[in-house]
Each structure stands twice: as structure tokens, then as C-alpha cells.
Design a protein around this nucleic acid. Structure first.
Lengths: 139, 139
DNA sequence: TAATTATTTGATAACTATTATCAACATGCT
DNA sequence: AGCATGTTGATAATAGTTATCAAATAATTA
């Protein structure tokens, strides 16, 4: 089930610890989670986990590109497991984040714009801020 | 020249102080700047400006929407004066940021995707991470 | 499976970043 | 000029992140 993850950890000399797996599992279940959210959630399983352990793991998981940061305007960064490229619908009110498929058009268009400036694009990030379905109604 | 800015400040009961104008001027010249960069720069003019003053100004300028935050992955946020919508080419090596025009196509496409999810899009943000012309060469 | 090595964990100290407080001061208005 | 209100600068208080290090654990080897 998570053989690919374990393999990637081993490739980079990262050990497969229960804490690390629980962090990854939390990210999987949450989709996107902040340091605090991860910490609170992982503590349910590992009562004595240290906040520092969460930070250290996030750093190493970023380095080996198992996860990526999602830096947000006026809010704390969230982290997500790397999968296919996608965009984000970010609710300004409740903070919820929904993934949507990045149409290829957009990505192609973006890298075209970039190469016109002789910029070597590696990653395209499209974030849409606004109000989610729910918050739009209860306004 | 900056009548529109002064007007907007007054509309929101923000006073036109020299420090505040210098911060705006710095953002204008830099294009994008972090808190630290603004602080260092403004200090050249106002020797005794406090870091707290910079923070407070950034907060109030954000509130009245004269500037916006640019939250970056693995780097400190930068701030920019709000003008026409545009995208960013962000160099992972030197940290430089270049504005590019967001083709209308992309924006339209994005809000189409959003409304399909019943999401009320307010702002679309397209960031392209990679290597700038310069860093690409000296690699 | 015991021994060995390298990494990780947890606790906490150290450091960095941000916000709050408040008296003195500056701005905008009349 | 005089008043009301917002701002500044200094600094204390918080919050967020990173560094340190001994004890514990995972992975490897014998």
C-alpha cells in the first residue's frame, strides 16, 4: 500500500519510524494540514511526540520531495503529499482547501509565458482564493 | 503622482506619514520586498524607524488593500503594491521575482474551474517556480 | 538473534519572528 | 493655533522555528 513511500524514504536514508508514518498518514487523511494540525493529530497516536519531531520530519520529507509546502496568504503554511499537479481553491473564510485538476491548457500556457522570459519553469502553482460553497451560502 | 494612494489612505483614516510613504515608495522601487528588506531600506531615510512600525504599516496597508502579500514556498513572504493582475516567475536559487502578464485565458479558465465547484473565486494567483535566466546560466 | 552503526526521538534551550503596550509625537481638521 | 485621533518608537510579551544532545530505535551485519 505504501511501498513507494517506504522505498523513497530508504533511498534517502530516512528511517521508517512510526512517528514519520503517522505524519504521512495524517497528511493523507487531511489532504492539507498545518504544523499544528499535524502535531495535534499525531499526538493522538504517539502521546509523547515532540513538536520538534514534527518540524524535523516536515523538513526532511520536504527535502526528499515526498511532501510539498503550500504557502498561504494571511495564514499558516499547509503541507500536502506530492501527487499529480493540481490547483487549489482556498476559502478565505473557513480556510478549507479543495484540490481541482489543473487543466493542461493552463500549465502549457504558463510554461510558454515563462520560457518567453528565458525562465526555466519547474513547478506551476495556481491558487484561487475566494469563498467555498458552504461559506458563500452562510454569508 | 500618488494622489490615488493618499486618497485611499484618507478614505480609511490612515494618516499620511513620512514613514508610511517611504514604505510604499520602497515597495514601488523594489517591486516585491520582505519585511526585512523594507525595514533596512526605510531605515536609510528614517534612521530611527522601528521594526514594529514596519509591521504595523504592512498590516494596515494590507487591510485597505493598497498592498498584497505574496506567500512563498520555503522563503519569507514578500509584499507588493496592488496593480493589474499578474503572475510571478520566482527563482528558486536567487529568490528574484519577475512579474508577467497573466493571460486572460488563464484567468477565465481558472474561474470556470472554480465555479464548477460552486466556489466564488475572488483572486487568482499563478506562481511559477524555477530558475531565472541568470541562474540558469551560472549553474 | 546479538552486536554495531546511523538515524531519530523527546525535552528543552536558543533563537527568530510577530504582536501588544503605551507614552510621546505628528497629522488632519476646524 | 488647538483639538481629536492615529502613529511612532521602544520594548515587553508571545508565538513560531531551529539547535542541541542524551537516550532510544531502526537497519544492517555477523
Amino acid at each position: 500500500m505504501k511501498l513507494d513511500i517506504i522505498q523513497k524514504l530508504k533511498e534517502h536514508d530516512l528511517k521508517v519510524t512510526p512517528q514519520r508514518l503517522t505524519i504521512l498518514d495524517t497528511l493523507n487523511r487531511y489532504g492539507h494540514a498545518s504544523i499544528d494540525e499535524i502535531y495535534k493529530e499525531v499526538k493522538k497516536v504517539h502521546l509523547s511526540i515532540s513538536l520538534a519531531t514534527v518540524y524535523k520530519n516536515i523538513t526532511s520529507l520536504l527535502q526528499v520531495k515526498l511532501i510539498k509546502e503550500l504557502a498561504l496568504n494571511e495564514a499558516k503554511s499547509k503541507y500536502e503529499i506530492i501527487k499529480e499537479p493540481h490547483s487549489h481553491l482556498i476559502c478565505k473564510k473557513c480556510g478549507s482547501i479543495e484540490d481541482i485538476n489543473l487543466s493542461e491548457q493552463i500549465e502549457q500556457n504558463a510554461s510558454k509565458l515563462a520560457s518567453a522570459k528565458e525562465f526555466a519553469a519547474e513547478e506551476t502553482e495556481l491558487n484561487i482564493y475566494g469563498l467555498c460553497k458552504n461559506c458563500k451560502q452562510n454569508n
